[in-house]
Simulated scan of single mutants.
Amino acid sequence: MASDSAYRTGLFALGIELDGEGFHPAAAHRAGREPADLLNPATLTARVRAAENAGFTFASFDDSLAPDSDGPPGRLDAVTRAAFTAATTSTIGLVPVAAATYAEPFHLSSQLASLDYASRGRAGWLVTDDPDTARTWGATPRITAEEIRRERVDSVEVARRLWDSWEDDAVVRDYATGRFLDRDKLHYADFIGETFAVKGPSIVPRPPQGQVVVFGYGAIGSERPDVALVTGASVAEAGEAVRQARAAGIPRVLVDLEIALDTPDATAIERLADLDALAPTKSTGRLRFSGSAAELTALLTELAATADGVRVHPAVLDADLPILARYVIPALLRTGLAHRPVPGSTLRANLALARPANRYAKELAR
């Protein structure tokens, strides 16, 4: 099984969500900072560096344009945050959330390709719909889930075509002759969907990874994501979600996991009770864990029997991230379950994903 191979080679991926103060609605009350600090670049940089130094494979940045979002009261857009941290990091993957339904696909694909260049091959894209943003845009919400799904599929497809619209050696850089581009190695995307059309080619050369790593939620095979993030209220349910995603042909499957850890000042149960008294938590359908660092290590080892990794959502980032960095990840590294990304490696390499061949170069070679 693919998961067994991941365990043997230490390719159990470890991701962390770094948006806001944590998954719990009351996290801001226990974060020890002002809400405006979330817009401070120093806060963002410190957290991403802490996650990188701990050994995480990637960090994701949630986002929403909906004014009634359950997230923090204010945020910079996720792609901007990821791009800002690209220059000050060297190993951690950077995976912003970007809604496919209301973003312009051409511009979004260019932003993500630029992020891959800025990070030297560490960019990902967590595709979402975010239909509630229709009110923000002044647009009529999509009527059916099928219409939303179809536009999401089209957006991913056109992004992949645009990333391939430059062959890898299209840029010549021959200063002696003044020739910098091979026009024959640029290709039209020629995409026509039901709600938009894109001619292309892209305005950004092919990303270092060939294509930015596409993340998606659940067993959504029609979008052809590279990585699926699945949920489950129990380990058994999460395992079944992993199997469904594998059956849909998704190469890598990770489990979304909410965590609250014992700290020197309080147990996880005490911390959650304190947080719930301030603002009751909402059910997200994700697998949830509360307990000691050793117990979390045991759970992750159990999940490694079926999944290719996890993305953790700490209850309060400033409290849980230090415990993860000091006790949990070192234990996983010692057992060989996980590995620490090294400078120069791409996000694809750290997820054991092959660099895709350019579709247009392959077609012309036939």
Rank of each mutant, 00 (worst) to 15 (best):
M1T: 11
A2L: 13
S3D: 11
A6T: 13
R8I: 06
T9A: 11
I16P: 01
E17S: 15
E17D: 13
D19F: 04
D19T: 08
E21H: 14
H24W: 13
H24C: 13
P25W: 10
A26M: 11
A27E: 10
A27F: 12
L39C: 12
T45E: 06
A46W: 03
A51W: 05
A54K: 04
A59R: 06
D62S: 15
D62I: 01
D63R: 01
L65K: 07
D68F: 07
T80A: 13
R81N: 15
R81V: 05
A82I: 07
F84H: 14
A86S: 14
T89L: 08
T89G: 13
G93A: 03
G93W: 03
V97N: 02
A98M: 08
A98I: 02
A98K: 07
A103W: 10
P105V: 02
F106A: 12
F106R: 13
L108M: 12
Q111A: 12
L112D: 02
A113E: 02
L115N: 08
G121T: 01
A123K: 01
A123L: 00
A123W: 00
G124R: 01
G124I: 01
W125A: 04
W125P: 01
L126P: 00
V127I: 15
V127W: 04
D129E: 13
D129N: 10
D130M: 14
A139D: 11
T144I: 12
E147D: 15
I148K: 09
R150W: 01
R150F: 00
E151V: 15
R152C: 09
D154L: 03
V156E: 04
R160N: 10
E167R: 08
D174V: 02
D174L: 06
D174A: 08
G178N: 12
D184P: 02
D184M: 05
H187A: 07
I192Q: 15
G193N: 09
E194L: 09
F196L: 05
A197S: 15
V198M: 02
G200A: 11
S202F: 02
I203F: 05
P208M: 05
V213W: 00
V213E: 00
E223L: 15
P225T: 03
A233Q: 09
A238T: 05
A245Q: 02
R246M: 04
G249D: 12
R252N: 01
L257G: 03
I259S: 02
L261V: 08
D262E: 11
P264Q: 09
P264N: 08
D265G: 02
I269W: 08
E270G: 10
D274L: 09
D276A: 10
A279Y: 06
P280K: 08
S283R: 11
F289D: 07
S292K: 09
S292G: 12
L296P: 10
T297H: 09
A298T: 14
T301E: 13
T301I: 00
L303E: 01
A304I: 00
T306W: 05
H313G: 02
H313F: 15
A315C: 10
D320Y: 07
D320T: 08
P322R: 11
A325C: 09
R326E: 15
Y327R: 11
V328C: 13
I329N: 05
L333P: 06
R340Q: 15
P341R: 14
V342C: 11
T346W: 09
L347P: 04
N350T: 11
A352C: 04
P356Y: 02
N358R: 06
N358D: 09
R359H: 03
E363D: 09
A365D: 14
A365F: 06
R366G: 15
